Simulated scan of single mutants.
Amino acid sequence: MQNNDMTGKAAAVTVFICILFGANPVAIKFCLAGVGAFTAAGIRFTIAACAIFIWARYKKIPLTLTHKQLGQVLILSAIFVVQLSCFYNGMGKTTASHGALISNVLPFMVLILAHFFIPGDTISFKKGIGITLGFVGVLSLFFDEQDLAGEIQKGDFIVLMAVFLWSSSAIYVKRIISEYNVIQITLYPMLFGIPFFFIGGFLWDDQMIRLINPTIIKAILYQAIVTASFGFVAWNTLLQKFGATALHSFIFIMPLTGVLLGILLLGEIFTPHLAAAIVCIVAGVIIVNFKREKKPVPVV
């Protein structure tokens, strides 16, 4: 299915999921106040994998993989582990607002990769303008006054690397997802990734768990149940039906949610560079996905 096949109901669900995902960087910031980056990812996906597995058993959804599928899932799992490791470590250094905005470069990276790896999905002049605006918006973040210490800028680069891996994963999933059910493509990267997250926590987190309080517990549960369980399954279901380009046209909702919640809940500063990034990125997404309706040709 192509972009114009998305129904109003599917669009509304996509908007809701994007709002949930947009709040995730804020939840991660709360979580990282007491839990190491790798450990936080391990705990999150352990809970999420258990929830998804229980749901699959309840619904009697088949989980068995063929030999070919196992090889594909292992590739996807490797990308997943590196992507989430980068994202959590980057979020530990940057702000929730920056993390949310940089995440929105995803649709532009998806377009670029789709141009090379998905037949017929080429970059037009209009898409090129949108992509340029999106990257200009992200670039403006690296000149934000908050970056003077250098730590935030380092975190921004790491999050940007995570987003590139996320876009690579989205293209790869789109190429293989017809051979899977949604639960398989969501559950197995988590299962294979969990041991590596905890090993990373043991080796590289300063302290795996420094502090546990109700706020940190709620932040972990939000990431695990709301986004990693419900969110991932719903997202992959929509991806399977409507395609990467149609789905990622709604990504601009995530940074708007993330910036707003970062300011309201974390007291982050709304700077001119942040405003410029929002304008450029949102404008880029709108330009990329705007389609002029064709007027019907009158029948003579």
Results as ranks from 00 to 15, higher is better:
Met1Ile: 14
Asn4His: 11
Thr7Glu: 08
Ala11Trp: 11
Cys18Thr: 11
Phe21Val: 01
Gly22Met: 04
Pro25Val: 08
Ala33Asp: 10
Val35Gln: 00
Phe38Val: 01
Ala40His: 04
Ala40Trp: 06
Ala41Ile: 05
Ile43Glu: 09
Arg44Gly: 10
Phe45Ile: 02
Thr46Asp: 03
Ala48Asp: 03
Ile52His: 02
Ile54Lys: 09
Trp55Pro: 06
Arg57Pro: 04
Tyr58Pro: 02
Lys60Glu: 13
Lys60Gln: 12
Thr64Ala: 14
Thr66His: 08
Leu74Ala: 15
Ile75Gly: 02
Ala78Cys: 07
Val82Pro: 03
Gln83Gly: 04
Gln83Ala: 13
Cys86Leu: 14
Phe87Lys: 06
Gly92Ile: 04
Ala96Leu: 12
Ser97Glu: 13
Gly99Val: 01
Leu101Phe: 08
Leu101Val: 12
Leu101His: 03
Leu113Ser: 07
Ala114Phe: 00
Phe116Lys: 00
Phe117Tyr: 09
Pro119Leu: 08
Pro119Val: 09
Phe125Glu: 13
Lys126Gln: 12
Gly130Met: 06
Leu133Lys: 07
Gly134Ile: 05
Phe135Arg: 15
Val136Arg: 14
Gly137Trp: 12
Val138Phe: 15
Gln146Arg: 10
Ala149Val: 03
Glu151Lys: 13
Gly155Arg: 09
Leu165Met: 15
Ser167Gln: 10
Ser168Phe: 13
Ile171Glu: 13
Arg175Ser: 12
Ser178Pro: 01
Leu187His: 05
Gly201Thr: 07
Asp205Pro: 01
Gln207Thr: 08
Pro214Cys: 06
Pro214Ala: 06
Gln223Trp: 02
Ile225Gln: 03
Ala228Asp: 00
Ser229His: 00
Ser229Gly: 05
Ser229Thr: 14
Ala234Gly: 02
Gly243Val: 12
His248Phe: 13
Ser249Arg: 14
Ile251Asn: 15
Phe252Ile: 14
Phe252Thr: 07
Met254Gln: 14
Thr257Gln: 10
Thr257Val: 07
Gly258His: 02
Leu264Gly: 15
Gly267Val: 05
Gly267Tyr: 05
Phe270Gln: 01
Pro272Lys: 03
His273Arg: 06
His273Pro: 02
Leu274Ala: 04
Ala276Asp: 05
Ala276Glu: 09
Ile278His: 02
Ala283Gln: 07
Gly284Asn: 09
Arg292Gly: 15
Val297Ser: 11
Val297Arg: 12
Val300Glu: 15
